[in-house]
Amino acid sequence: IPPPAKKPLTKIVSHLLVVEPEKIYAMPDPTMPDGDVKALTTLCDLADRELVVIIGWAKHIPGFSTLSLADQMSLLQSAWMEILVLSIVFRSLPCEDEIVYAEDYVVDEEQARISGLLDLHVAILPLARRYKKLRMEKEEFVSLKAIALANSDSMHIENIEAVQRLQDSLHEALQDFEGSQHPEDPRRAGKLLMTLPLLRQTATKAVQHFYSIKMQGKIPMHKLFLEMLEAK
């Protein structure tokens, strides 16, 4: 007997899958000597390029572009690191205790220690373990990423009702997805949403890490990355 055909995905989740950005690569500078300066320079450059992609991606989330420009900015300024961390964690799910910053930049604990990335590594691993345990799927990842943006708790939102409507539509999309794809676990949407506090904690640690690097002034940082760090 063939397994029952899965129901079609909700419109929003299918749309989020379509607008999911292409992979980008870290491309570490081969002329730089290995060490923490090279590792951090590579990560800051990668983060800057990822930010450009994230801003472009956000515009494709149904309902985001109809928010005022000021509210779009506030949501991104609050949530950008959560989006970055969630993407890194999703890429790292197939690995065991390795962090996939990019396809060409996979770091294990030993390499993290040598490269001065151990704090970041140790901060990200618990979140990766949590999503591994849940066996998070791509549809759930794209939904959760959009929810993290809409639910960023910025203190500067002008139109709270409009942001609430965005949250509601994304929340509903996740619930509909789980209702149709995981009827065996009626609490799955809730379990995913309950990971958001750890995502925020992890992102806060990552922002603090990069902010202290910025203050030390030894690593070159591009303007968009600096701008977003300063907004935190």
């Binding site: 800057d48 390029r49 450009v52 801003i55 472009g56 515009k59 420009l69 000021a70 779009q72 900015m73 991104l76 300024q77 591009h222 303007k223 968009l224 701008e227 977003m228 300063e230 907004a231």
Partner: peptide
Amino acid sequence: KEKHKILHQLLQNNTSPVDL
């Protein structure tokens, strides 16, 4: 907005910022 020039610029239009 002046402080967050690049974010503002990227959200407002589809052109790449000059300094990235």
